[in-house]
Each structure stands twice: as C-alpha cells, then as structure tokens.
C-alpha cells in the first residue's frame, strides 16, 4: 500500500511545464539595439529621437508580453523616427547606424519570442542566439558599407536618377525572387 501512496504523491509535484516566455539574451539584445537606434537619432534630430524613443518603449513592452504585433508596431515607430530625422535634415551616418540597429532590434525581438514559444526559455539556446545575432549584424554592416559607398560616390549630387534606378531595380529583383 505504501508504494501506491508514494506514487500518487510524486505525481502531484509540479510537472515539466515549459516556460514559454521570450529568451532573455535576445530580448535584452533587442531592447539594447532599439535604445542605440534612439540614441543615434538623438544625435541628429530631436523629433526623430522622440518617435524612436517611443518605439523603443513599445518594442520593450512587446518583448515583455511576448506579443509580436506590439514588437512590430514599436519597430515601425522606430522607422518613423528615422524618417522624421531624415526629413528634418539629419546627416546620413547616424541614420545608417540607426537603421541597422532597428532591423537588428526587430530581428532579435522576434527570435526571442519565437524561440521562447517553441523551444522554451530554459532550453539551451545561447550559441544559437549568438550565431543568429552575429549573422544579422554582419548583413546590416555589409549593407551599410555598400550603401555608404554609393552615397559617397554620388555625393556630387547630379546622379540622383542613377541611385533611384539602382534602388528600384533592386527592389523589383528582390520582390520577383520572393
């Protein structure tokens, strides 16, 4: 009889419920990148920085609540900050850094939520997250380098048409391949 009651007691212990909240590393990384983006914009334009700061908070709330839609809304606010900064005459360099940071913030936030939901906060994900963040960062830095090169090359100003052609061509090609 003793065995029976023991088995019952063991089963009543809390079982292995998966903690599905976002993984902490990527979540913190996401908020950090959003904050860097806001700081960069603050160097260039107050209007942009205000929007971007709001975006950072929304994004942080979204990560906290594990709600992708809120994260996306925050990222759009951050993009709005970049646009506002650009329109109010910010220089190109901080905008470039901010843009890379915004994409990274969104990417990491999405990863944190998705990994937490599918794999769980407690599973071993550190290396995976590091590889993922590094790849995204490399893509961002690479694109920024290419973009900045183009920017400097066309700094003369007479070939806006050329840049527009290049960009539209790229957008169309990418859309076609998706």
């Amino acid at each position: 009889m003793v065995t029976v009651s023991e088995a019952r007691a063991a089963d009543e212990q809390p079982s292995g419920e998966i903690d599905r909240t976002p993984t902490p590393r990527s979540a913190i990384g996401a908020v950090a990148f959003a904050a860097i983006a806001s700081a960069m914009l603050a160097l260039a334009s107050i209007d942009g920085a205000v929007l971007a700061f709001a975006g950072t908070i929304v994004l942080a709330v979204g990560v906290w609540l594990a709600r992708l839609r809120i994260v996306s809304a925050g990222s759009l606010l951050l993009v709005g900050g970049i646009v506002a900064a650009g329109v109010t005459g910010a220089t190109a360099e901080p905008l470039l850094v901010a843009a890379v940071c915004v994409v990274l913030a969104w990417d990491l936030a999405e990863t944190a939520i998705e990994l937490g939901d599918r794999i769980g906060r407690d599973a071993s994900t550190a290396r995976f997250e590091a590889v993922h963040a590094a790849t995204s960062l490399a893509v961002g830095v690479g694109s920024a380098a290419v973009g900045y090169g183009l920017y400097v090359a066309t700094a003369g100003g007479q070939s806006t048409t050329a840049v527009v052609l290049l960009l539209f061509g790229a957008v169309i090609v990418i859309s076609a391949f998706r």
Partner: peptide, 17 residues
C-alpha cells in the same frame, strides 16, 4: 519578366552612375 526589368533598371542605374 519582372526580375528582368529590375535587372535592366539596375544596369542603367550603374551606367548612369
């Protein structure tokens, strides 16, 4: 077709540059 148009655009943009 669409990608081809895109490539033509990129090409002319590069030449224009």
């Amino acid at each position: 077709w669409i990608a081809t148009i895109g490539l033509v655009l990129i090409g002319s943009g590069a030449i224009a540059l």
